[in-house]
Nucleic acid binder design. Structure first.
Lengths: 138, 138
DNA sequence: TATAATATTGCAAATTTGTCGCAATAATTG
DNA sequence: CAATTATTGCGACAAATTTGCAATATTATA
């Protein structure tokens, strides 16, 4: 099942329909990079209202379609693991460059153990690194 | 050196002094749990101005005294590793309960490898789990 | 496919969150 | 203690986010 279909079915299952604005927002996120609210509103202001962007993101987040990732002061929005390959970020504190990397080997077992220890049913996790990239490390 | 002294010396070294408001904010964070801006302003509004809370947090953050952690929708403020034991969180998606846990064994090596791979000088990292706690998992 | 019922959106207004300038107060220096 | 510098409160401002409601689009039903 492709992304589009998965989107539709996720919405449908929860009583929502895929409208043009929702489609537009989803598309805007498909580029893959985390986007700030400001970027999203600028990109989409000709297509949909600011308020609708917020409302749609709230829905998408509740349905697990998108997630917020905190990066320093601001947060950004990106597609969740269900709609893009699971990954994490390493962010440069100086220039802001963001690199995505795959789930490191060995992490899963560690997290499973933690969830078990605290009797949690683990749903998702985030791992964010910060530091200075090769250009900025001096 | 106790926390108090470490706070004073961190401030001093950077040309700041420990004032009553700064003390109050620091104390408010000592409870250990991450606090939202809203919680902090409510707690401290009789003691210090809203603007000063923001200014003080900006300073504390710049000096590495506090960090922001993203938890679901909002971010929260808590003391950094330098002023409280390094730890991570597992948060219940339903009731909001937050449990802190220590750095899991094996993580450090994994992160070092990643930083090395992308030629980053690693400064800090965050690991957040979400799921359903024992009370809410049903 | 037309109609009724429901969901979604845009728009404007309200609220909340975060920032700024500046005069008053507190802390530090000599 | 006086002078200098740092910090705060206050009010105004700006940006971000939320809300109510009427207009529009979508879905369900006949």
């Amino acid at each position: 099942m492709n992304l589009q279909d998965r989107l539709v079915s996720t919405l449908k299952q929860n009583g929502y329909s895929l409208t043009k604005p929702r489609q537009a927002l989803f598309s805007a996120l498909q580029a893959g990079k985390p986007r700030s609210m400001r970027e999203l509103t600028l990109d989409l202001e000709s297509v949909m209202d600011r308020a609708s962007i917020y409302r749609t993101i709230a829905i998408f987040e509740r349905l697990g379609i998108v997630v917020r990732v905190q990066q320093g002061w601001k947060y950004k929005i990106e597609l969740s693991d269900k709609f893009s390959p699971h990954h994490h970020h390493i962010t440069c504190l100086r220039c802001g460059k963001i690199i995505s990397f795959d789930e490191p080997a060995g992490i899963e077992k560690i997290l499973d153990d933690i969830a078990l220890q605290y009797e949690f049913v683990q749903k998702n996790h985030s791992l964010e690194l910060e530091g200075y990239c090769s250009n900025c490390k001096n």
